[in-house]
Design a protein around this nucleic acid. Sequence first.
DNA 1: AATACCACTGTAAACGTTTACATTAAACAA
DNA 2: TTGTTTAATGTAAACGTTTACAGTGGTATT
Lengths: 332, 332
Amino acid sequence: MSEDNRITIKDIAKETGLSIATVSRILSGKGQHNGDTVKRVLNVAEQLGYVKNTAAVDLVKRQSHVIAVIVSNTKSNFSSSIITAIENQAAANDLDVFILYAGNNDSSSQSRAIRTVIERAVKGIILVSLELNEHVKSILADTTIPSIFLSTAVKDQSFPYVTSDNYQMGYKATEFLIKKGHRSIGLIGIPQHGSISDRIRGYEQCLHDYQIPFNDKHIQIGDCLYEDGSNALTKFENKLPITAAICASDVVAIGMMNSVKDAGYKVPDDLSLISFDGTELVDYVRPAITSVTQSFYNMGIEGVNYLLNDATIKMKYLPFKIIERQSTQKLI
Amino acid sequence: MSEDNRITIKDIAKETGLSIATVSRILSGKGQHNGDTVKRVLNVAEQLGYVKNTAAVDLVKRQSHVIAVIVSNTKSNFSSSIITAIENQAAANDLDVFILYAGNNDSSSQSRAIRTVIERAVKGIILVSLELNEHVKSILADTTIPSIFLSTAVKDQSFPYVTSDNYQMGYKATEFLIKKGHRSIGLIGIPQHGSISDRIRGYEQCLHDYQIPFNDKHIQIGDCLYEDGSNALTKFENKLPITAAICASDVVAIGMMNSVKDAGYKVPDDLSLISFDGTELVDYVRPAITSVTQSFYNMGIEGVNYLLNDATIKMKYLPFKIIERQSTQKLI
DNA sequence: AATACCACTGTAAACGTTTACATTAAACAA
DNA sequence: TTGTTTAATGTAAACGTTTACAGTGGTATT
């Protein structure tokens, strides 16, 4: 009875005396069939332990019903909201989701991941928080598989994306602190390049609009990492030349808060902190961190919807909001 | 030139005047071929933008070279270490990794995920932190695809697994606190059932060995969640009947610490805290949390190795160690 | 009684690879 | 010369589905 080989519809056909076409139709719920026959096929399939061979299905259909999500492997905890949303929205549309990791600066791991999913003729590709170099983008552009970037703006508009307006976020975060009386405001852990760096522009513009002199000593370039935050004080030569800091991510803020507290300063008394992202981490620490909270969940939803509706190329900014917690206070 | 359809080796064959067999062999580096021919094929493939159809390959080879990782979708941050390890070890063996999420108590999402990967004839399945019900386990058992559980002990030994010894961890965590003078020790957020619940047994045994009376009021069943920790004080009716607590996970400890601090208590002065896992989170908070640190990265490595070496069924415990940080202190 | 329709099922081609086996021609050995 | 080996390539079957098309027999319509 149990061969070494996997059970195929051929086996079911033999067992039931039907043709493989009929079995196939019944198993995939197409056409109309005698009720008894259906039951018989289903029973036999169950008994024999049949599992469909998706490779064969995908081959003949020339399309698989999976959505590939390629995520930056950097310690970015916000992606979990996005992924949850994608999972939910995909499940609602009877799609499977495969998640792959790729390095953000590692073009070989990027192209490997992308090749992997293109080779499988996935239904769509969602790239989360990933900046691709030109070569990898061209691989992606050469296929007819729709793709969309989340949490990254593709500067040359060659691909659709859904993200937050980094310039605006930078501006608003700065303005938030200014309105609390701060005039010496640090900017910590933002990358020099890529779409996130627009936050720097927003920061600068805001200072300018409020006639606050720009001081490049207050900016520390980084990579949105914990270390960028925890090293910030050292880089300031262990003094605090600022009364408030805007941190590139929640973990940057946490890192900075820890080193600052460990050095004997108080947050927010000696230093106000605001971070980008607003993941659950901001509530894990004390004082809880005021954040520029992004709509990550909705990004995931929008991403799947875009792929399904096969819309034309577009870019979209999702709203963000500043949620004040305990890490910021009015400068007295 | 550019059809709507994808380029296949057939197109390359036509273009080069070779047979598809030759093209196939050259593209997959098999057999021996004229150097010039090889170059020509490679060039044409590149020019035409050929991408292999993995569905066809998998179909004929009856095996895909991917490792599927099915992860519990519960907010468990430790899985990222495991996944990183799996990625690394898989890449070293030229295997692709697909990650799928499944609910821990959601048997339909579990079986969906498992079906999905079985249908694709993956090379192996790694289940991370997932307890499967009997039905789903039987699906898994019915295939010849090797699978292994990480960070979960399969109680009936029907599948191989690599995890930490939960009983021992429970025992050692308890002993650690006892040796610091604590006698009223809480146990917070541990599930009633499943392999993690062995920690309760270890806890009880340790108390017994040190002749400390067991008090079931000190145990709060939970699900390793932040809320289990943050609600703990309320469940204790806003008093602290204990001087130390063992928390089911880092986030449980953080949740408990926050609510305790918010209520005006001090950690570790009024309450010592120790948590299981020891992810980066324990260093994000102040006081940093003493933890029973597990070897997650190695779990990932071991998982892939098991699948590749096709070893016989086995179970394995990886070492853990207690790392003392700031959240525990001697009871005076 | 002839016709049309319908429910149900079968036949066979197609999807894009891989690979065992066959073939060819050149090189070499005898 | 003839036979043997070898490099390079071709032929064709196979993998497990789906699906357009073609039956078949029965029922309803005229």
